[in-house]
Amino acid sequence: MLELAIGIILGGCALGAGMAMIAGIGPGIGEGNAVAKACEAIGRQPESKGDVTTTMLMGCAIAETTGLYALVIAILLLFFAPGHFVNILINALG
């Protein structure tokens, strides 16, 4: 019975980590848009390439934040949560 419970915990953590990373879609679309617009801007004004690239990298970094929150949650679910939950279970069973 304990094996089944631990199996459910591990499976739930892995599923949760995978589902958390769905948030990766958002930054992908956002950064793609930003880079596309930056390419357009450089094509229109090649002399402002340096400024456009710097601003684009900054924007990309900010757009990435939500994806990184999801990544942190996924990493917590993969590497820390299973041991923690199994400990709680074993303590509860006594």
């Binding site: 970094a61 990435e64 934040t65 990184l68 929150y69 990544l71 942190v72 990493i75």
Partner: peptide
């Protein structure tokens, strides 16, 4: 929080 997570998440995800 977002500054710390951004830096740490990028490097850690790369190594993972």
């Amino acid at each position: 929080v977002s500054m710390a997570f951004r830096h740490y998440g990028n490097i850690l995800s790369g190594s993972v």
